[in-house]
Simulated assay, not measured.
Amino acid sequence: MSTLLYDHPGPRARIRNRILSVVFGIGLAAVLWWVYAKFDQANQWEGWLWKPFTEAATWTQFILPGLRATLWAAAVAMVLSLAFGIIFAVGRLSDHWWISIPAGAVVEFFRAVPLLLMIFFIFYGVPFLIQGPVSAFWAVVVGLTLYNGSVLAEAFRAGIRSVPTGQSEAAYAVGMRKSQVMQLILVPQAARAMLPVIVSQLVVLLKDTALGYIVAFPELLQRGVNDLSANRGNVVAAAMVVAVIYIVLNSLLTSLAGWLDRRSSRRAFRISKQTPKPGPGGTATAGNVTGVTEPQG
């Protein structure tokens, strides 16, 4: 039985994969050509529709201010969501029912409420409770934090439960308290294990800033599509340009996460190499240094 996780394809499998790749490539090219032809029939490739994007005023008045608002709201919501997720994940794992049950109720409630409805309620409903207005920025940030933080709480909880129980038992055996075990042992390993899920949810958070249009938050979609097309009449062209910007932003976020994952893996590998290991005769070795015991008299 093979001990590999992946068996290299044989000659017939390689031929089949090449044929499927060619068929898929032709199908994708046909779909792209069909989209291009349909837009061409609707005169969406006319030069005057795309000319505004060659002008500096378009970027300085519409796109860059919207991009700046999107990045700022997303950055604040990301930090708050990660903190919310860690706190409520630990709360759900508490041994005290008066902590775990309310924490679970909060997480399940905010996961169930649609984000658009949450932003709408925070902006229009909360002012009746606090007797004061709520800015569009904080309505978007708080809504993103509550929803994405609840999803991240479940991700962190799953990651913490996936850490082998022997590690926490060993930490308790040396006298560590549960808070220390969570902070020093379980949460760091859970964060590394769940990094793909965390990054995926942060990408969703970045895209969901576009829902701020419901409260007229001047983010990228509002400024780059709605406001720009209202002045220039090029809604499809503006939507395409904004979509490309979102794709670039999400790709950069994914690349950053990959870099952090590789860096943490290299650091863990260096630490494991530097950990002293029993050498011949029972003495400790570190790296490529081998300890030798003195002969017994």
Results as ranks from 00 to 15, higher is better:
226 N>M: 14
165 T>A: 09
94 S>L: 05
161 R>I: 09
39 F>E: 13
232 R>Q: 13
78 M>I: 13
207 K>Q: 08
114 P>A: 10
92 R>D: 00
54 T>K: 06
174 V>Y: 05
253 L>F: 08
278 P>G: 08
261 D>P: 00
225 V>R: 10
175 G>M: 07
139 A>D: 00
109 F>Y: 06
294 E>F: 13
232 R>G: 00
273 K>A: 12
182 M>P: 02
267 R>D: 11
229 S>D: 10
28 L>C: 12
170 A>N: 01
231 N>K: 15
270 R>H: 14
204 V>L: 11
11 P>H: 11
262 R>F: 03
225 V>K: 09
84 F>D: 05
288 N>P: 00
20 L>E: 10
87 I>C: 08
172 Y>M: 10
92 R>W: 01
32 L>I: 13
107 V>M: 03
101 I>T: 13
137 F>C: 07
160 I>K: 04
141 V>H: 12
281 G>N: 15
205 L>K: 04
5 L>E: 11
199 V>Y: 10
204 V>M: 07
172 Y>D: 05
256 L>E: 03
143 G>P: 09
154 E>T: 10
139 A>Q: 01
241 V>K: 04
22 V>I: 14
179 S>Q: 12
103 A>V: 04
111 R>H: 09
296 Q>V: 11
23 V>T: 11
160 I>W: 04
160 I>S: 04
174 V>L: 10
256 L>R: 05
254 T>S: 14
203 V>P: 08
208 D>L: 08
51 K>Q: 15
1 M>R: 10
63 I>L: 13
144 L>S: 03
85 G>M: 03
231 N>H: 12
74 A>F: 01
2 S>C: 00
297 G>H: 11
183 Q>S: 14
86 I>M: 06
112 A>Y: 03
29 A>R: 02
155 A>Q: 13
102 P>D: 02
181 V>R: 03
97 W>D: 11
92 R>L: 00
252 L>T: 07
267 R>A: 15
170 A>Q: 03
158 A>K: 03
29 A>I: 13
174 V>I: 15
124 Y>E: 07
191 A>Y: 09
60 T>F: 11
14 R>F: 00
240 M>G: 07
285 T>R: 13
107 V>T: 06
59 W>R: 08
185 I>W: 02
5 L>I: 07
257 A>R: 03
254 T>F: 08
132 G>W: 00
211 L>D: 02
109 F>T: 08
32 L>D: 04
293 T>K: 14
40 D>Q: 14
79 V>A: 15
217 F>M: 04
41 Q>P: 01
14 R>H: 05
107 V>P: 04
258 G>W: 00
141 V>E: 12
35 V>K: 07
98 W>E: 02
175 G>V: 09
184 L>D: 07
77 A>D: 05
273 K>M: 14
164 P>D: 14
240 M>A: 11
23 V>M: 10
197 V>R: 09
174 V>P: 01
109 F>V: 05
108 E>C: 07
53 F>Q: 04
254 T>I: 15
46 E>S: 12
6 Y>C: 07
156 F>P: 09
82 L>Q: 08
65 P>A: 00
150 S>C: 04
141 V>N: 11
74 A>S: 14
297 G>Y: 09
108 E>A: 14
52 P>R: 05
259 W>F: 12
